[in-house]
Computed example of a mutant assay.
Amino acid sequence: MTIAHSLSLAAAIALLSACASPSKSVAVQQQTQCPLNLQVGQQMILSLPSNPTSGYRWAVREDASSILKSLGPEVYSASQSDLVGGDGHSTWRFQAIGSGEAQLLLTYAQPWDASTEPAETFDCRIQVR
């Protein structure tokens, strides 16, 4: 077997093993992506439309902490940096830490108005293997 052939075979094996293993992170942007299946160690990046200047905020109601670990606070980024009061996205990062099933529930509402139903709800059943 030549060195070039050995290198080609090694590259092919590495490519196949990369395809067989799960992605290190899963991006979630819509309720339609749920239910969600993750593997222990995998990260979930949740990004939802948001506009805090309207007074509405996302609040985590059920954090699936038995299977997910938060990797930091919510991070807001504006869609257009030069537009004051414009829409953007709120992003959370989680890591799957244990096997099981749990609910991740967030609501989008004005925190001071508890009598009004949330404008939006993100409700996702997550299973970690």
Rank of each mutant, 00 (worst) to 15 (best):
A102M: 02
W58P: 10
R129K: 14
V28S: 02
L46R: 08
V128S: 01
Q30G: 00
S25E: 12
V84I: 11
P35R: 02
A102C: 05
L16Y: 00
S81M: 10
L68E: 01
Q95A: 05
I45Q: 13
D123P: 04
L105C: 09
A11G: 00
W58H: 05
P22L: 01
A10R: 04
C124S: 09
D123A: 15
S115Q: 15
P73Q: 14
V40P: 02
W58E: 13
V28H: 04
S50C: 11
M44F: 00
G86K: 11
Q80V: 14
T91S: 15
L15E: 12
D82E: 09
D82M: 08
S77E: 14
A14S: 11
A109D: 12
V40I: 09
Y76W: 14
H5N: 06
Y56I: 06
G100I: 07
D113Y: 05
T91I: 11
V60H: 04
S25P: 00
T107K: 13
P49G: 03
A119H: 03
S8R: 15
F94K: 04
A27V: 09
A78K: 14
T121M: 10
R93C: 06
P35D: 04
D82C: 12
P35C: 06
A114M: 11
A64E: 07
V40G: 01
I67C: 07
A11W: 01
Q30D: 15
L7K: 09
I45V: 15
L48D: 03
F94M: 09
S6I: 01
A11S: 04
T107C: 08
Q29C: 10
E74S: 07
G41N: 06
G41M: 04
T91Y: 05
C124F: 00
S65D: 05
T91N: 03
S77F: 02
P35F: 02
M44N: 07
G100Q: 04
A109R: 13
S8G: 15
L68Y: 02
L71N: 01
L71F: 01
Y76K: 03
S70G: 12
L15V: 08
R125H: 08
L9V: 13
V26I: 10
A109E: 12
G98R: 14
Q127G: 08
A27Q: 11
D63I: 04
P111L: 12
G88Y: 10
S79N: 15
Q30M: 11
V28D: 02
S50T: 09
I45A: 10
S66E: 11
S6Q: 13
Q39W: 00
L71E: 11
A78W: 03
Y108M: 11
L106G: 09
E101D: 08
S90R: 06
Y76R: 12
T32M: 01
G88P: 11
Q127V: 07
W112D: 13
Q43S: 14
W58K: 08
L7M: 05
I13T: 08
Y76E: 05
S21Q: 06
A10W: 00
S70A: 15
V60T: 13
V84Q: 06
F122E: 06
A59V: 12
V26H: 02
G85S: 12
N51F: 09
A10C: 07
V75I: 15
W112K: 06
P118L: 04
L68P: 04
A64H: 03
A20K: 04
S99P: 03
Q103L: 15
Q30Y: 05
E117M: 07
Q80W: 05
R125S: 14
W58I: 13
L46F: 00
E62Y: 05
S70V: 02
H5L: 08
Y56F: 15
T121F: 00
